[in-house]
Structure formats: structure tokens, C-alpha cells
Nucleic acid binder design. Structure first.
Lengths: 199, 199
DNA sequence: GAGCCAAACGGACCGTAGTCCGCTTCTATT
DNA sequence: AATAGAAGCGGACTACGGTCCGTTTGGCTC
């Protein structure tokens, strides 16, 4: 009679305690290695050794080096998304849509610049992350809709996000463009895409 | 007295005959391997073996695997650029600027989709290619100027090119968007950026 | 607490990118 | 044609990502 209805509880693939401990240790070790040298210093062998586990364990937890990098990014991303969803305006809710959109672009650009090395090291595992892409696209789409923009909002949102990608930013910096110019350029792009406010 | 003014002739770092022969053989071998299997099958050992040279030679010629891939792309890129510079309209000269711009976007998108695997394999070596980026940006910039667009044309050109990048296209295809939708979306983006024609 | 087993672990092993250095070959010069 | 020396060559070697499988361990049931 005490069997607690395994119908839904069985759907929780709980992680074993030692596995969880190891994941923490590995993430910690990876962060230390990044601080110690740079992202290139984060080899799978080094992470495993520093965490005191076998190499196979690292791959079991994260699938690949890119997966490990993506996990490191995940925490930062969550914090940032929280700021968008429920932080103070103009990034968070409460400001006019255009202000929010411009703030969004600047904030995302800075995040990408800060995490550039990690993002590039995470490669497709991060870039293909449905959750992140979906969140960014949805947020921009909603703001565009609030601004009265009509048309293929999904495409327009993607088009506004594309110039914020790390390779584009790197190239712009490399060719002498300042962060201010990049921000101003993006704002101009947004103004043109949004167009004149409807009466 | 017969020394032929080494001032400028010395600036030509001519390639030795055997080196040139080997480069051709290696490019040929790499193309064959791509046709035979896919881009993943193009390992440096395999290319060297098929061309009948040592592995060190491949690295001497192309610097890295990415460099080899970039060299393979170079030929296609040259052909495409020729079509833009001197091919038939509307991609080539002779058509109105807006037609040329829309044709440019569609053509570039198709090129990126065809060469996607190679472009991704070439990584930064291709992405950082100053000549290619410069050509694309300049061309778009000139067309925008002809259309009377004002502002930071370099940024706007980059922003129009960014959604044509391979990772973006791959993501869009993956989420069910058709090539027609992508083309239509880009055209809409261009119309919004260009804005109303000046009187 | 004993026993079971799925999950997790470890590290030897493999393939590939990239380096290094002693040897060979081309070409300019006389 | 001889020669010098620079440019090119080859392949053994290293480092790293990723796989595999025999062994260990945590957590559940009885």
C-alpha cells in the first residue's frame, strides 16, 4: 500500500550522488584551469586529473569537450536570462519596448564579448542549443510585435541577432570598430527594421 | 651591369616548380577524397598518401587542415566573385541596385548552402579571410550607397551579410524554414533597411 | 545487513592534427 | 657543368579528443 505511485516518479532519471559530486568537481576544476591559463589550457586530461577522476568520467558527464564548455556557459546564461525576464528595466520588464530591445542588444553584445573564448570553444554544442536560441528569438519577436512590426518576425528576430554573433563581433573589433560604434550601428539597424511608429 | 634592378623583382617570392606541382596534386587529391566520401574523409594523412607526398608537405603548403579547406573554397569563391563583378545581370552589373542586392543575397545564400560542409571545415581560416569579407562588404556598401541609404554603411552591410552565415542558415533549415522563406525574409530585411526611396 | 544490478568509473587504447629536424632537390650563379 | 645554399621534403613523434570494456560502487529490495 505504501508504493508511491511510480507512474510519474519513474520519469525522473535521478543522478547518482557520486555522479553529481563528480560533475561539480569537474566544473570546478575546469573553471580553475580557465582562470589559471586560458580556455586552451582546459584539456580533458587536465580537467580529469585536477578533479581526481578518470578521463572517461569527463566524457560520460559532458559528452565532449564542447559539451563541457557549454555547461560552463550554462550558468552565466541562466543568470543573464533571469536579468532579462525579471531584472530591472530597461533590460528587464517595465521599460518601453524599444528601450528594452536596445538594452537587450547591448547587454547581449557585452556578454558575447566577455565569453567569446568559451563560446567559440563550445562550438556547435552551444550554437545549436535550442533553449538559448529559442529564448533569444522569442524575446526579440515579442518586442518587435509590441512595436507594431509586421511580417516574418521570426526571420527578422534572427536577422537582428545574427550581427551579435561572436565571429561577427570579433571581426568588427579586429577591423578597428569600437564597441560604441557597434552598439550605435546595431541601434541604427533596429530603428530601420522597426520603421516609423504606427499612428 | 646586367643585374636587373632587384628592387622590385626581389619582392616576388616565386614558388619552386616542384612545390607548385605538389600543391596541385594535393588539391586534386583532396577534391577526389571529398567526392569519394565527404569532407570528414579528408584527413591530412589521406590527402598526403593519395598525392604521393609526405604529411609534412601538406602542412608546409596549407598550414593546417583549415587552410587546405580554405584553399579548396578559394577557387569557387573566385568564380562567384567574377559573376558578381562582370557576369550577367541582375547579379552582375547592369540591373538596378535593389535588384542586384536581392540577387546577391540569394546567390550568396545558395553558395553558402552548397559549400556548407567545406566552409565549416575551413573554420576561422576562411571566416577571417580579409579578401572575401572585404569584397562582400564593399559590394553591399556600394549598392546601399546607390540606393541612397545613409548612416554607417559598413555596419549595415555587415548586418545584412550576417544572416547569410552558414550557422544561421543551418539553424533555419533545421527548424523547418524553407529556402524560399529564407530568401523572402532576407528580401524583407533589405527593404526595411533600405527604407523608402528618396524623392 | 545481505545481495543484486544498473549506473558510474578508470585508464588503456585509437585516430587525427600538428611539429621537428635531418636529408634531398631545385635553381641561380659562375 | 660545377657548386652553393635556400627551399622543399618525409615521416617519426607528440598532444589531444574520443571510445571501449572490465571493474567498482551506490542505492534499492527483502
Amino acid at each position: 500500500m505504501s508504493k508511491p505511485l511510480p507512474l510519474l516518479t519513474s520519469t525522473t532519471p535521478v543522478e547518482r550522488a557520486d555522479a553529481a559530486r563528480n560533475r561539480e568537481a569537474l566544473l570546478h576544476a575546469a573553471n580553475e584551469l580557465i582562470e589559471g591559463c586560458s580556455v586552451e589550457g582546459v584539456t580533458m586530461d587536465a580537467v580529469a586529473a585536477r578533479a581526481g577522476v578518470g578521463k572517461g568520467t569527463v566524457f560520460r558527464r559532458f559528452g565532449s569537450r564542447e559539451g563541457l564548455m557549454a555547461s560552463l556557459l550554462d550558468h552565466r546564461e541562466t543568470v543573464w536570462q533571469a536579468a532579462v525576464i525579471s531584472g530591472p528595466p530597461p533590460l528587464g520588464p517595465g521599460a518601453p519596448p524599444l528601450d528594452r530591445l536596445l538594452s537587450f542588444g547591448e547587454s547581449r553584445m557585452l556578454l558575447h564579448l566577455e565569453q567569446a573564448a568559451l563560446i567559440e570553444a563550445a562550438g556547435r554544442t552551444w550554437g545549436d542549443n535550442e533553449a538559448v536560441r529559442g529564448f533569444l528569438n522569442l524575446h526579440v519577436r515579442v518586442l518587435l510585435a509590441e512595436l507594431g512590426v509586421e511580417g516574418d518576425l521570426t526571420y527578422l528576430a534572427t536577422a537582428l541577432l545574427a550581427p551579435l554573433a561572436v565571429p561577427v563581433l570579433r571581426q568588427q573589433l579586429h577591423s578597428g570598430m569600437t564597441q560604441e560604434q557597434m552598439h550605435a550601428g546595431w541601434a541604427e539597424l533596429v530603428r530601420r527594421v522597426v520603421g516609423p511608429a504606427p499612428a
